[in-house]
Write a protein that binds this DNA or RNA. Structure first.
Lengths: 264, 264
DNA sequence: GCAATTTATGCGGGTTTTTGCAGGTTTGTA
DNA sequence: TACAAACCTGCAAAAACCCGCATAAATTGC
């Protein structure tokens, strides 16, 4: 589409045909996922009404989404409709599959809560014999469905927000044991800052779990890679395995491989 | 710290369209389970009022859950609603009403599990401030819905059929405390044999609870009056209050009144 | 080629949307 | 119980929108 390439750098008054102009607009929308009416009317040198009419026509044809002040691409707008149910559930199922493969008979496993852990609980093979320990009530509910695993609930005061048990008792209980694996659903990870979260109580629990396990496994959708939250859980040096829905050799994950983490 | 998640998708944070902004917010909520209005208005560079209006609109559309100071993801806050097809639910609601009247602010209350206890949890007045302790996962789920009460989960191994935590740890934890009330949903009661049950683990828990409480309250539908189960929990002399859906002066209950139990 | 006709564009004015701010009220927490 | 943060309500300014109309541009018919 080099046909349009020069227009925004060419303030010369050009006579653009209507079809041509609309093609240009559509191109811009697809390229940047959004356009502003004001910007377009400067670029093409037509009145704002004309731009508005163009946007309206393109919207009527279903090519773009018209909004107050400009337009959005259709792909951008998908966020709104895909927001039903658990966010990114497909991706989390993939992650759960990879994580479930790590678990072997006889293992003792500490887990956090969160929707990814719920998927893990659902992905456990039916004949698995292992012991799962958690303070997350939704996670325990899911583990209870499994026919053969042993489930241990960490007791203490219940946090209504995070639906986990929190407090000194819970942390002391975690410290008492030495688990084979600690599997955490994490909310943010960054090479420099490690994993971080935004709930103080959850962080306390996760920190204790990391210290009480021989191997630390972190589960997260790739979207949360290279993001930071306010409260620190542990550094990358404390993490043994990182699991996302992407392939281990995805460039996004290279820094973590370089940092010595086993990426699955 | 202006490095929070999401900036990578929002390099040009100036002049964001309304829909675009809302999509960004929704994305953040789904990603992190919660957002703060203050954080968002810094990130997007708009006034807090605008953020609040956006959150309100998204909440009206059912996309998120608005709370004081920010918003929560819908999937995270999902309520596990127990089926309402409970046997004799009407009668249990009556029992729950009577039992709830016994509870006063500041009390510490031990409870068992069971559908009658679930009804009790639902019947608690909204402004009540008390502490409830239980090893029953369904009961804890119900207590969590209440806005002001404190909830303490007794930890230990989870019994999959009775959905309670059982074991030495759990019993030791109960022994540590001295509750104002112990409220038991019971499966059988008889003047001669006292209360009995058919699950060994449940009985151990209930016995410990009876011993750790100043007053013992038994809840049961009248149908279970004068029935016997294999395993003994406690004698009638250990019971302080008995609550059924019938009137206290019902002839069926007279033997228990005569035995010194306060019948409600 | 030229007039008639259709289409596209720009403009004026009135309406709606969006946004920030001032104020008073509610809420959560120490 | 006191206090700060968050909330709501109303308001006003700016931006965007819509409608009708006049004019310019393109197309068509002859």
């Amino acid at each position: 589409m080099h046909l349009f390439a020069g227009f925004k750098y060419n303030p010369t008054k050009l006579l653009m045909l209507k079809k041509e102009r609309q093609a240009y607009i559509l191109h811009q929308v697809n390229l940047h996922n959004k356009v502003l009416s004001a910007t377009l009317c400067q670029e093409i040198n037509v009145s704002e009404d004309t731009i508005r009419r163009d946007l309206q026509e393109l919207a009527d044809e279903g090519k773009i989404i018209k909004v107050h002040g400009g337009a959005l691409s259709h792909s951008f707008h998908e966020v709104f409709h895909l927001s039903n149910g658990v966010y990114s559930q497909d991706k989390k199922k993939i992650i759960a599959q990879k994580a479930a493969a790590l678990i072997q008979n006889g293992m003792f496993i500490l887990t956090s809560g969160g929707t990814t852990i719920i998927e893990l609980a659902r992905a456990l093979p039916a004949q698995l014999r292992a012991t799962f320990m958690s303070g997350s009530i939704p996670a325990i509910l899911e583990y209870m469905q499994h026919p053969t695993i042993d489930v241990i609930m960490i007791g203490d005061r219940v946090s209504k927000n995070s639906k986990i048990t929190i407090g000194a008792e819970a942390i002391a209980k975690i410290r008492e044991i030495k688990a084979d694996l600690c599997i955490l659903g994490i909310n943010a990870i960054d090479v420099r800052h490690g994993t971080t979260d935004n709930d103080w109580d959850v962080v306390q629990l996760k920190k204790a779990m990391v210290e009480s396990a021989q191997k630390v496994v972190c589960l997260t959708i790739a979207e949360k890679i290279n993001t930071i939250q306010p409260i620190h859980i542990c550094g990358v040096q404390d993490i043994d395995i990182l699991i996302t829905e992407r392939s281990p050799d995805d460039p996004l994950l290279k820094p973590y491989v370089d940092a010595g983490i086993q990426v699955l």
